[in-house]
Design a protein around this nucleic acid. Structure first.
Lengths: 109, 109
DNA sequence: TCAGTAGTTCAATAAAACCGAACTATTGAT
DNA sequence: ATCAATAGTTCGGTTTTATTGAACTACTGA
């Protein structure tokens, strides 16, 4: 049987794990897409297309266990949402400034 | 001869490398000490005391190459300062909110 | 010049990431 | 109900990265 998704309580989310999760270019891109889009994304849509499925799955697991996203199965696919409100409460300004900075950095290139 | 310290130009500093550098508990602690203290620290003072010298040195190298600190030899020791102004300009709010969040997280425990 | 202190570099080991292949879960068609 | 297709997970082996003891470099002060 497949294990159900595990989401840490917001108070158990550590700043280090959040930063670690966002430090990877692929994962930062995923978070940007989830945050910027309809606010709910399946894995294949949110991750770069050329990335192997197992690697995609690994990255979503890291984001989930870091407390950044909440995932839920909907039919054959898994939909993930950013835990923005909770995270903003726990680490004010952190996610927002990072997302803003990543946009700006992208424009520069 | 020992190589001189290399510091990236502020425009070459990537958000990912900054987040990566700060994602490690030891390095985050170092940055907090450098930021909170007299604003200039040698390695032994800024790093946890029980950490092997080679590991300390490695962590300072990561912070340096990520663009977070500027290091300079002063006699036998190396003094490092946070590149706060430059970083604030490039990634507004990022370092500040992370430092603030890390203080709060510490108090909770 | 010599001893002591502060940090770096090297090389070997330990830990983590990556990805192909096999597996699970769900849906929709026959 | 069964079968094929889709979406994602898990496993295991390989590659990459981190850690650290030991040797080395740089500087200071006696």
């Amino acid at each position: 049987m497949q294990r159900p998704f595990v989401h840490p309580a917001v108070d158990d989310v550590s700043l280090e794990s959040v930063l670690y999760a966002l430090a990877d270019p692929v994962r930062l891109e995923i978070i940007k897409r989830i945050a910027g889009g309809t606010c709910a994304m399946n894995c294949s849509t949110a991750a770069p297309a050329d990335l192997p499925k197992s690697t995609q799955s690994h990255h979503f697991q890291v984001l989930r266990e870091a407390g950044l996203i909440r995932s839920e199965r909907r039919g054959t696919e898994v939909v993930s949402v950013l835990r923005c409100t909770e995270l903003e409460k726990r680490f004010p300004g952190v996610i927002g400034s990072i997302l803003k900075a990543s946009d700006k950095a992208k424009k520069k290139i």
